[in-house]
Design a protein around this nucleic acid. Structure first.
Lengths: 197, 197
DNA sequence: AGAAGGACCAGTGGTCCGTA
DNA sequence: AGAAGGACCAGTGGTCCGTA
């Protein structure tokens, strides 16, 4: 059982100021972070908690006949804070959305990446950066439509597609289009291989 | 052929200041407004034009790999203005959305309402107010889900549900629920009718 | 009076950068 | 140095109210 919401005041010995959350470290699936650290299962658990808060906000909105958010909005973060989940905040959740996306869309690949980066002793920032490429590759296989990939997954569809992920997909699509047209007409589907003509 | 986009400067004889649009009057389907007035076919035509502008904005966004609006947003109004459609503006379009909604969802009822209000010599404001009730009645038959009604119609789904329409549906739902429970258990589905027990 | 729309405002999506 | 998150900012949804 890792994570701040279990300890009431998170290493703060009854003092006054609330402490920051412990930083994340790269953990394997199922592994609990030791010391003043949080693991990646805990990170992903925060996304599930946000989903629960969204569902509550949606239920209240429906009850009142007000417009009903479909995404985790500022309103949901405000609700989470009010409900006592002070360890949830927008910059953190937005920062790791694409990591959670990989976990949702290809859990095997996500797990493998975690194990590899843990073994190499990489920090969280390096792991986070490495989560982009597998997602771009998945987008490549699905017509580069990263929005469709997010929307197709019920737990992922409530999150905005991160700007950087969208840009990487766009850049790679243009790259792929360029390299598949370098040889001109007739269309060459095997660039870098010698064609005997 | 009615409407401002046909005359370049809309009754402004080469002066300087652009004039306001002519006010709307209640017209029958197919009827062209005479004098310095615009008819309701023209009003609904403006909604179709906004849809065209949205589609253009969406195509540009997709091309650039940017996030793609699903609704007529400020960005779309700005694009419309830049494209020369200065007679389109947000307050006007939002003001009459529910009138367009009725036209989309039940054109027969919309046409009948137009004929009735024209015959009675009612002004546009009165007709506009009268467009709410038929929509609330339709929502009543569909589980009070006005969002679902908007989203189910391809030309309507790009418009935000107006706050007042949402509130009317909610109020009427509560009314209906209250009047269907006045007689207590067992549930009485025929209030106002005498039950012989 | 009835109606069109410029312009304002509270709260949003997005993320930087002072902090620990 | 690496990382968490308060706080800011440009542009949004919403519509009021000074205008014609």
């Amino acid at each position: 059982n890792e994570g701040a919401e279990d300890d009431d005041i998170n290493g703060n010995g009854g003092g006054g100021e609330r402490q920051r959350e412990h930083p994340f470290i790269v953990t394997e699936p199922g592994e609990v972070a030791r010391g003043k650290k949080n693991g990646l299962d805990y990170l992903f658990h925060l996304y599930e908690q946000c989903r629960d808060f969204l569902i509550q906000v949606q239920n209240i909105a429906k009850e009142r006949g007000e417009k009903c958010p479909t995404k985790v909005t500022n309103q949901v973060f405000r609700y989470a804070k009010k409900a006592g989940a002070s360890y949830i905040n927008k910059p953190k959740m937005r920062h790791y959305v694409h990591c959670y996306a990989l976990h949702c869309v290809d859990e095997e690949a996500s797990n493998a990446l975690r194990r590899a980066f843990k073994e190499r002793g990489e920090n969280v920032g390096a792991w986070r950066q490495a989560c982009y490429k597998p997602l771009v590759d998945i987008a490549a296989r699905q017509g580069w439509d990263i929005d469709a990939i997010f929307n197709a997954h019920p737990r992922l569809s409530i999150w905005y597609v991160p700007t950087k992920l969208r840009q990487l997909c766009h850049a790679e699509r243009n790259n792929a289009a360029a390299s598949s047209s370098v040889s001109g007409e007739p269309h060459d589907h095997m660039p870098f291989y010698i064609k005997h003509t």
